[in-house]
Design a protein around this nucleic acid. Structure first.
Lengths: 247, 247
DNA sequence: CCAAAAGTGTTCAATCTACACCCATGA
DNA sequence: TCATGGGTGTAGATTGAACACTTTTGG
């Protein structure tokens, strides 16, 4: 990082959010309908420019998140994902976006955005498959974000961010099954999450019942890195040499 | 990502590089001595502002890499790490840096920078321990980059980027040992790297000898994601509950 | 033939998977 | 007392760490 004689060209910074949650057992992503002109009327990730003077990037992400979900920041996991800065990605000029991943516990159905024309939860599958078109390079960003979440479930405590403050192990399992799109053995899942010490810790003597034996309640533990990790079942190897092309 | 009435504040974008290589069996990082005024004379990561008109971020990283190492881009692994944009990180104003991780095969000793006053390979340990002070928030960036490389060796083929086009399994093992700072069993390492199909593939009938039986030569295979992964030995658990504090 | 480094076989323990089984509650 | 989901035990397969041993070269 050193200066040169020429003065460097400034760019515009935006913050875009991949906000994920679970709804009726399926992974959903929050999208807004654009009210302004580049891509007006098309679905896009929530986000916006950095505020006037010296707003921190992470603060801007939090601000946008609250504008869209009206959720107490404390319950939401928020982390930086990557930068998307291709010169052609925004017709308005050189706009560089810092993408963030946010995970929220299940929210009430319709989220009327304060800012955007309209905001809605869309099944993640519809975005991954390309069924829903997105503005800018947002499909790419959303795909990257979802993939990031998938792998991070394995070795981090990210899954608890999908639950409320307290949750049962069965609820936690639903998170894994929804995000990974696979079924897991309930009984082995039990032991695995408990084997990762510090992942979840018992919460009071409370229980919650849905027809059978009441389940113990847990809350997120102090550890964010899981050991041993929860391994994702390998896809069933479709007769090919391995699992299709690579690199 | 939607517009507002006010016009957004532009920021300056830089690209900073964490360039790692192996030298005499130890992990080294390339640092330059700053010739310009903020932090003049202090060590810093190689990097610089984006070029005049619409240079792509990745292109800028490649450009800076070549200026510093004069290495054919094709042999170097280069990927984006993260964005560092805290408002106080650069005394010149709002400068946002896109950090990159570069891995290069061992290079000839002195790398006389074209741009910087001086460039030198510094043992990674000296940076991690804080023994060497770095300009800006570059120690943080370097630390993050090294940690990123460490974990990525486990599940990706990143290690081959430290070797030349062809390498022996013993050389590959040295990479793991140097980056992780642990000793590995040669014989089990053999089977593990070969079990991860597509990681390394035999290169011709060539062999290379250093005193004993000649070793087979390999080159990087098509797969970038390793399955099964090479797991890093857990640190010996120092009698504490687990491995020290967390979160 | 000896030293040195490459590569193979084998053992024993830890782990994982699959599934049988018991437990606690509401109706 | 039955249905329903929560939670535990356990046998067999798979994997992993440790280490003896064989192979191939140069001196």
């Amino acid at each position: 990082m050193q200066d040169d004689a020429w003065s460097p060209t400034p760019v515009l910074l935006t913050v875009d959010l991949v906000i994920l949650t679970l709804r009726q057992g399926d992974l959903h992503i929050l999208l807004v309908e654009r009210g302004e002109d580049p891509f007006r009327g098309m679905l896009a990730l929530p986000g916006g420019f950095l505020n006037h003077d010296g707003e921190e990037i992470l603060d801007a992400a939090h601000r946008e998140l609250n504008e869209e979900t009206a959720l107490a920041s404390s319950w939401v996991h928020l982390e930086q994902l990557a930068v998307y800065g291709d010169s052609g990605r925004d017709p308005r000029g050189r706009v560089v976006s810092v993408a963030h991943l946010a995970i929220a516990p299940g929210l009430p159905d319709p989220v009327a955005g304060t800012d955007a024309t309209d905001a809605a939860w869309v099944p993640a599958e519809a975005v991954l498959s390309g069924e829903r078109e997105l503005a800018f390079d947002h499909r790419r960003i959303a795909t990257d974000g979802i993939e990031h979440a998938r792998t991070k479930l394995e070795y981090s405590s990210l899954a608890t961010a999908f639950c409320g403050e307290q949750f049962t192990i069965a609820e936690l399992q639903q998170v894994y099954e929804a995000v990974w799109g696979t079924a897991l053995d309930t009984r082995n899942f039990y032991r695995k999450v408990q084997a990762a010490k510090g992942f979840i810790i018992p919460a009071g003597t409370d229980r919650r019942t849905t027809g059978g034996r009441p389940a113990r309640l847990y809350k997120a533990g102090p550890k964010t890195v899981l050991f041993p990790p929860l391994t994702r079942p390998a896809p069933p190897a479709t007769g090919q040499t391995t699992t299709g092309g690579d690199e």
